[in-house]
């Protein structure tokens, strides 16, 4: 026996009427809100001006690329840079050299805090000018103290050095035991055999864990699309080094990989008027850095108690 028909009430719409006013209003209100929310959530896409190309999207992990793969990737990057800046860059993928481990030494008795290194680095490594991304921070500390909490990086006197202060430039310390590498969930950053910790900007997902892990505040994040004026673009680039970055990726000092793996000194050293910066191969007993580590007595490895074992040594001429 079929179930009895429900009681028919006059204000309920007949079952076949389709839409009642109330259900229409309800549905359209829900729909409006929903669509508006969708529009809002998609809005960031409007600001995205470099959609990943299929090529970039399908790119292999750096360490798994064959030379052929890399050649293709380099061509893609060269095309992208040329499209964006109108300059054909020279992109290379320089590999670590055998028997080379880089070390940096910085003479705190000589540094005068002029910040030329900061800007030479920006020029060499194609950092964003606005917003400003800089790999080197020069800290000013009162004489006789090494309390980083008392440091000031916004000093702006007429001239440097100032009496009663010394200056300590801080950049990536290229740790032997890098916390940033350990926390990266996608292995987009790793340490190479010459001691340089590199980042694959095409592999980075922008989670910024490494930034938080770094005790030296050495890593910088591209919150917005980097802006570099065409006339200041450095066309001599390397894959793991100074090629232009995208919005949403991490970057940091890489000892000017495009220069140092070609045998040259880094840009910050070349521009230092005081000769406070020393760089070289610690495995070569005749290098400047070997001499310094052998002959100078006082070294500071910044925050060394964290177990990071920096390859960046601060020293004094005593």
């Amino acid at each position: 026996m079929p179930a009895p028909e429900p009681n028919f009430t006059p204000d309920a719409a007949p079952a076949d009427a389709g839409v009642t006013r109330r259900s229409f209003l309800r549905t359209s209100a829900v729909l409006t809100t929903g669509l508006a929310a969708l529009a809002a959530s998609l809005k960031p896409l409007l600001q995205m001006n470099d959609f990943p190309t299929a090529e970039r999207f399908l790119q292999k992990y750096y360490k798994e690329m064959t030379p052929d793969d890399m050649a293709k990737v380099i061509r893609r990057i060269e095309n992208e840079v040329e499209r964006q800046y109108g300059i054909r860059p020279h992109v290379r993928d320089l590999k670590p050299m055998d028997g080379v481990e880089f070390v940096y030494c910085l003479n705190l008795t000589r540094c005068i805090g002029c910040r030329k290194c900061v800007h030479a680095c920006v020029a060499e490594n194609n950092q964003s000018r606005n917003p400003e991304i800089q790999y080197i921070r020069v800290l000013r500390l009162p004489d006789g103290s090494l309390d980083i909490e008392k440091a000031e990086h916004n000093y702006a006197p007429e001239s440097v050095p100032e009496k009663g202060y010394f200056y300590m430039p801080v950049q990536c310390q290229q740790c032997k035991n890098p916390p940033c590498v350990k926390v990266c969930p996608v292995h987009a950053t790793w340490q190479e055999t010459d001691g340089i910790t590199v980042i694959d900007y095409d592999w980075c997902i922008g989670c910024r864990y490494c930034e938080a892990a770094c005790p030296y505040w050495a890593r910088r994040f591209n919150f917005t699309k980097p802006s570099i004026p065409k006339e200041r673009l450095n066309p001599e680039m390397s894959y793991l080094g100074n090629r232009p970055r995208r919005q949403g990726v991490m970057e940091k000092c890489h000892f000017c990989i495009q220069r140092t793996r070609a045998g040259r000194y880094p840009a910050c050293l070349e521009v230092c008027p005081a000769g406070a910066r020393k760089f070289g191969n610690i495995l070569d007993p005749n290098s400047e850095v070997s001499y310094i580590l052998k002959n100078k007595r006082v070294f500071i490895q910044l925050k060394e108690e964290m177990g990071t074992s920096p390859r960046f040594f601060y020293y004094f001429d005593v």
Binding site: T109, L146, V298, I300, F316
Partner: peptide, 18 residues
């Protein structure tokens, strides 16, 4: 985990003022 004995020295007393 990774703390290790250190060879390098940080001796503030040795820092000469400019």
């Amino acid at each position: 985990e990774d703390a290790r004995p250190t060879g390098a020295v940080v001796k503030l007393a040795q820092y000469p003022s400019r």
